[in-house]
Amino acid sequence: MVEQNEAARTYARIVELALDPVRGEFDVDHLREVHRRIFQDLPHHGPGEFRPDAPGHFKQRALEASSARIVVPYALRSETDQHLGPTLAALQGGKALSGLDTLEMSEAMAQTYARLDYLHPFREGNSRTLRSFTEQLARENGHELDWGTTNVSAKSRDDLYVARDVAVMNLRYPDLTEEKVLSLETPEEYRAGVLMLQQLHTYRHHDPLQEIIRKSLERGRDQEPYDRRMTVLDAAREIGAVAPIAANQAARNAEEARLAVLRQKAPAATEQQAIERREWIAREGNMAALSERLGQIESGYITIRHDPGAPALDRLAALADGIGRELAQQRSAPSPSIIPMRPNGRDDIER
């Protein structure tokens, strides 16, 4: 009952923030004021105050859609004090994100969110504070970041939890390998390293934070599918962004379909379809194959059916279809007329 009451109070304050945001420079004071306004009715959560120092700062998160738990390693307070200011200063009062398109904004926002989440400055309410903070940051740069798209089901919430937590783990243990774990000096560090390596392996095929933010940005901007004419350069950039994520989605879908068939929760055709799509990625839908076909486009443009918020796998398929249609039109176009030349090099048109 207490948690429901507190959630209702903070929700009301978050709505107020959306209508009347903090007038600030997206610096430390700005972030603290966002937290203070959200938790102003709950003094025991230290509105606007940083968490106290502690020997370690871990959170054990229980996922909603499964019985799985994730241990998340956040920064020590000394790291927070050292890096929070420079991390926010890099935003240049928000101007550092000016003029970014959706792909660029999703990458920049994912990096900013992950770093701030890892630094975890407040004892309670970091997620709510960062959502309000990043929504305002995106909005003031011409984008609508709709975090509501991640809150439609237990699975969508878990997807966001996993993406955020994996990003934090990668910041705490960058490029973690078995060799690096073996080189950790203390038993505590070794046990933590082993656990992080296991967790990163378990969630290796899950969508990264930039994919979830891209879909949220698109759903906040557009709702209905439409035909999108794009340059070959933009198509190449989008293929580079979505192809690795699409490959992971195809692998995850195939494994989930296999388990569903084994548990008799889906027909065998479901697994076969997932396998075929995974094989299509490996054969034709990978970055190298699509880039090679894209290089054959003579017009410099392709048209795709753009479905805002579609997963990377569907976006990649739309790009492949767009390339295929453009190449088909290119092959069927009549050859330009050739005007016969006179022996002296002049054509037959009267001057």
Rank of each mutant, 00 (worst) to 15 (best):
A7I: 06
A8G: 01
A8D: 15
T10A: 13
T10G: 07
Y11C: 06
I14T: 06
E16L: 06
A18F: 04
R23Y: 10
D27W: 13
H30E: 05
R37K: 14
I38C: 15
I38M: 15
D41S: 07
L42H: 08
H45E: 13
F50E: 12
R51Q: 08
A54C: 10
P55E: 14
H57Y: 13
A62L: 09
A62Y: 03
A62S: 10
S66N: 08
S67Y: 00
V71R: 13
Y74G: 09
S78R: 13
E79S: 15
T80K: 02
D81W: 08
T87P: 03
L88T: 13
A90S: 14
A90T: 00
G94R: 03
K95F: 05
G99Y: 07
D101Q: 00
L103E: 12
E107Q: 04
T112W: 06
Y113W: 05
R115P: 04
R115C: 10
D117N: 15
L119N: 12
H120T: 09
P121K: 10
F122M: 09
F122C: 10
R123K: 13
G125P: 12
N126Q: 14
S127P: 02
E135F: 10
L137K: 03
G142L: 06
L145I: 04
D146Q: 07
N151W: 14
R157A: 01
D159M: 00
L160H: 07
A163F: 02
V166F: 03
V168Y: 11
L176N: 14
V181N: 10
E185M: 09
V194T: 05
V194M: 09
Q199K: 04
H201I: 05
T202N: 04
Y203C: 03
Q210C: 12
I213S: 06
R219F: 11
R221S: 15
R221F: 14
Q223P: 07
R228P: 03
R228F: 07
R229L: 05
M230R: 13
M230S: 09
E238V: 00
A241I: 02
N248Y: 01
A251H: 04
R252P: 05
A260L: 01
V261F: 04
L262P: 07
L262D: 15
R263V: 08
R263K: 12
A269S: 15
Q273R: 07
A274V: 00
I275S: 10
E276R: 06
R277F: 05
E279T: 13
A282Y: 08
G285M: 08
A288N: 08
A289Q: 15
L290I: 06
E292P: 12
R293W: 03
E298Y: 01
Y301H: 15
R305M: 11
P308I: 02
L313C: 06
D314T: 14
R315C: 00
A318R: 15
G322K: 11
R325S: 10
R325T: 12
E326K: 03
A328T: 06
R331N: 10
S332V: 02
I338K: 08
